[in-house]
């Protein structure tokens, strides 16, 4: 009976992880700059972006962010149980759904790591053999949280510096609209390359889905072949998520970006892709949305444009509360499971 329940939980976990990969693709707005600039046809852009995300997600599923989420955040003496992973998924999805209904922009990364913290904390205090102090890999957790603060800040700084450099050496020397249009034609093609580059790193850093599967690999529920197969499926579903579901958000955002210059979009894309690449190579899961928002702020600061401090403040509040709220939510859910003996 217990084995049946575990099997069902594993199937549910795999299905949810794949669904999460689909939703990562479905919520990806990186392509909107490319579509807004009219570089390539809409469906082709979706296909290219989808493949890039899928390739990024699958290629980096053997270590890096997936390993951090699926194993490295925990202390040496502890591995995830299937119910812990189920709780992490339920909690982070629940908090994201609540956020969506309330119209609050939330980070799935912060929500996931918060949930992991809550679950592991409850696990450590309910199991006498586990010391709460050694239940976490504190160095890794600290690095992840520091990454959340540093990544947007660096996104802002890199965008600012890159734009200033480009403006000083090239853009400010363009005198007429014809010259500007001609140069922006070249930037359009560079934008295409940068968006593909960014999408690969978006996929690589989106460790939520494959991280859960990595947890199943780490605790021995999945063997390596099975893990590769499901990680590949996650890549395919993130691609499908972009192609099938992201088209609405991409089209909507692209229509608002039609008059943005490809050179400006190029800089924000390169900056966010660089941040995502560095964070991925350091195995740190970060919020892509926060990075891109701060890259746009960096661009606005460089151009001395107005900044919506009110909106930014609101985002900062949700940014800060996501981790503790997800942790408490996950802790309560896991405590509930414990009451029924589902550990």
């Amino acid at each position: 009976m217990a084995a049946d329940i575990i099997s069902i939980v594993v199937i549910v976990l795999i299905v949810l992880a794949i669904a999460l990969a689909f939703s990562i693709g479905a919520n990806d707005e990186t392509l909107s700059t490319l579509v807004g600039a009219g570089v390539i046809k809409f469906k082709l852009a979706l296909l290219i972006g989808g493949i890039a995300v899928g390739v990024g997600m699958f290629s980096f599923s053997f270590a890096f962010v997936a390993k951090t989420v699926g194993a490295d955040l925990l202390g040496e003496a502890i591995t995830y149980t299937d119910f812990m992973l189920l709780t992490v998924l339920i909690s982070s999805i629940l908090w994201l759904v609540i956020g969506s209904f309330a119209g609050i922009p939330l980070s799935s990364t912060h929500s996931l790591v918060g949930s992991i913290f809550g679950v592991v904390f409850v696990y450590s205090i309910t199991h006498e053999t586990v010391n709460p102090e050694t239940a976490f890999n504190w160095v890794k957790l600290n690095n992840v949280i520091l990454g959340w603060f540093f990544s947007p800040a660096f996104g802002l700084i890199i965008t600012y510096v890159l734009f200033k450099l480009l403006a000083k050496t090239y853009l400010s020397k363009l005198k007429g609209l014809n010259q500007i249009e001609r140069s922006e034609k070249y930037f359009k093609w560079l934008l295409l390359i940068s968006v593909i580059f960014a999408e690969i790193w978006v996929g690589a850093n989106s460790g939520e889905a494959v991280g859960i599967l990595y947890g199943l690999l780490d605790n021995g529920t999945l063997n390596l072949e099975q893990y590769i197969f499901y990680a590949f499926l996650c890549g395919v579903f993130s691609c499908l998520g972009i192609y099938i579901a992201a088209r609405y958000v991409v089209r909507n955002l692209a229509s608002q970006m039609m008059d943005s210059r490809p050179s400006e979009s190029l800089i924000t894309q390169i900056s966010s892709a660089l941040i995502l690449m560095i964070a991925t190579l350091l195995s740190l899961p970060i919020s892509h949305s926060h990075v891109i928002v701060f890259c746009i702020i960096g661009m606005n600061v460089a151009q001395r444009k107005e900044i919506d401090y009110k909106g930014l403040g609101k985002m900062a509040i949700y940014w800060i509360i996501t981790f503790p709220v997800a942790a408490i939510l996950a802790g309560l859910i896991y405590f509930g499971f414990n009451l029924f003996g589902l550990v």
């Binding site: 807004g36 609209l177 008059d259 943005s260």
Partner: peptide, 9 residues
């Protein structure tokens, strides 16, 4: 025209 950013202007 494919010059989206200046088209409207």
């Amino acid at each position: 025209s494919k010059l989206m950013f200046s088209k409207a202007d």
